[in-house]
């Protein structure tokens, strides 16, 4: 049976990806929790005590679970492998998707950095084909550039910066 690159060696996302995603989650959840607390306090006697407690506890609990459990889980479910003929990658927890892209079908590869991801030296890799693109959400920035060059060489396309 012919093999896929991912059968031989699978590369995981760098560990600091978890801290990066946790930081993002914190940025998103903080205003929500603050708004919930303010809402519960402002409602005062307008709503029963149970509802006020729930209004505070539920978002707080969701934020804690998201930051503590979900983000590390996200890293565990991702891997990629780059072979001579194919790019092989897999992600997903309940619905697991393994995607294979023939190297000759790659049109171009983009590396994207945001303000937060740059501070963690991470970047996003986007692989474009004629049918759409596939993204690897967070890689070591230098590794991303190296892979971009590697894919460009393998796919024999012009390097576009």
């Amino acid at each position: 049976m012919t093999g896929l690159p991912g059968d031989a060696e699978r590369i995981q996302l760098p560990e600091r990806v978890v801290r990066y995603w946790r930081t993002n989650a914190l940025i998103v959840w903080t205003p929500i929790v603050i708004a919930a607390v303010i809402g519960a306090v402002a409602a005062g006697d307008g709503i029963p005590g149970i509802a006020a407690v729930a209004l505070i506890v539920v978002p707080l609990l969701a934020a804690i679970i998201d930051i503590a459990v979900v983000q590390p889980g996200r890293r565990r479910i991702w891997w990629y492998a780059i072979g001579e003929d194919q790019i092989d990658l897999q992600h997903g927890w309940i619905f697991v998707t393994r995607t294979v892209i023939p190297m000759t079908r790659v049109q171009h590869v983009e590396v994207q950095r945001g303000p937060v991801s740059s501070s963690f030296r991470l970047a996003e890799l986007e692989i474009h084909t004629a049918a759409g693109s596939v993204k690897i959400p967070a890689l070591d920035a230098d590794e991303a550039d190296r892979i971009r060059q590697q894919i460009a060489d393998l796919a024999r396309i012009a390097d576009d910066l």
Binding site: G92, I94, F95, R98, T129, A130, A131, V134
Partner: peptide, 28 residues
């Protein structure tokens, strides 16, 4: 001419060693 192919599985499929196979063409 296949642009990319994928295999998607849900937990039940994984238990039964099944998978869903999909392809995408350049017509999107």
């Amino acid at each position: 001419r296949l642009q990319f192919a994928d295999a998607v599985t849900n937990p039940l499929q994984r238990r039964a060693s099944l998978a869903t196979f999909g392809v995408r063409l350049s017509s999107r």
